[in-house]
Design a protein around this nucleic acid. Sequence first.
DNA 1: AGCCAATGTTGACAATGACAACTTAGAGGA
DNA 2: TCCTCTAAGTTGTCATTGTCAACATTGGCT
Lengths: 216, 216
Amino acid sequence: MNLRLKRMAKPTRQYHHGNLRSALIEAAIPLLEAQGPGALSLREVAKAAGVSHAAPYRHFADKTALLEEIAARGYDTLTQACHKAQKRYVDDPAQQLVEAGIGYLLFVVEQPRVAHLMFGGMIALDACGEVLQQSSATAFKSLVDIVDGGVKAGVFRTAPAQELTLAAWSMVHGLANLIASGMLTGIADNRREVRRLGRQLAETLLHGMLANDKRT
Amino acid sequence: MNLRLKRMAKPTRQYHHGNLRSALIEAAIPLLEAQGPGALSLREVAKAAGVSHAAPYRHFADKTALLEEIAARGYDTLTQACHKAQKRYVDDPAQQLVEAGIGYLLFVVEQPRVAHLMFGGMIALDACGEVLQQSSATAFKSLVDIVDGGVKAGVFRTAPAQELTLAAWSMVHGLANLIASGMLTGIADNRREVRRLGRQLAETLLHGMLANDKRT
DNA sequence: AGCCAATGTTGACAATGACAACTTAGAGGA
DNA sequence: TCCTCTAAGTTGTCATTGTCAACATTGGCT
């Protein structure tokens, strides 16, 4: 009884947190976005979550493990963006591609530091855990699916298997990185501008750079 | 005379190193490529250069300052790749673009960790020093020049000022990042494969993704 | 010859990642 | 109902690291 009272009175002060794992991740993201991945300290995350400095080690083997988890969640978001685009524009692969790309970009604008975590190599590529590898592979695959659909529907030109996918992925990934790195400050600051940019580049990607009279 | 003898006898043991600044940078790059940017310690770099742990502070205000310098040199390399391509294929903007892009990619394959430093946001975007900002802007500008040349020559289609440049930059930058992140392991492992990939994507960039009968 | 400013060195401190030893509490069996 | 076992948190500690301050060295300039 006494226990229950205590629990109701100050639920945040329980010895056992409940689901510290998620709490740590959610505490970490704002800090990450505020100070950048290099400056993020595990102890600070612990403090933000209201636990002692060593508590995280009960849930993450490593500082890297926490970061990997955050990155993996980022990839999951991208995967979902692809799926959403596919469902929304059935039978219009070009539009699917544009929408998925824009989803990709919007995510990066809102969580640039998380994006850096995903793409920036802070996490050793070779040594990255299975979770991350799985998530990133899945994200890639959902983009491949869209492009594949377009090729099979005859909307995209026929080309060596991955060629088109890689081109599409490279472009959206590149633009995302440029935005996340702040190289496009002034051009892509808010969601509206990013949408416009995304559509613009998609146009170029679909129709090419060459002048009409120079096309083969 | 005595001095000269001493200098010849043990040149590495001089109290004054001579040009420690460069030596530190050159010592840092292999370490960086070996262990990744996160694991790089300034003390380790100092030891590799044969000086004490605080010596670097006579040449770099900060650990970040050293990293920025390395990144800046990377951008300079990219700039040179652009210029080289322009000189080599005068009057063929498309080929200039392809060559510059391949140069970009080759650099990234050989120094992926340096590339991460340049693109990955380890260095705070807003707080990055002038040197870095200057170098990256210059690199961008040399790419813009190539595309501009193509537009003016009527080879590329006319489009809002930066649109084409941004598309080209995004694609090459994206592919470079994918390679550097190790996401294309097995597809782009050596220079030859990277060249092939670069040419392939350039093809798609120039001609577009759409099937012939779908073009406007 | 002698001074001085640039360049290196040693020593110290706080922050951090990581581990070990100890504590708590809540779930499930006797 | 009570007991115990273990997952989850805590405190303490250590090595590493970035950074600064105080001291040492030396080569060039007067």
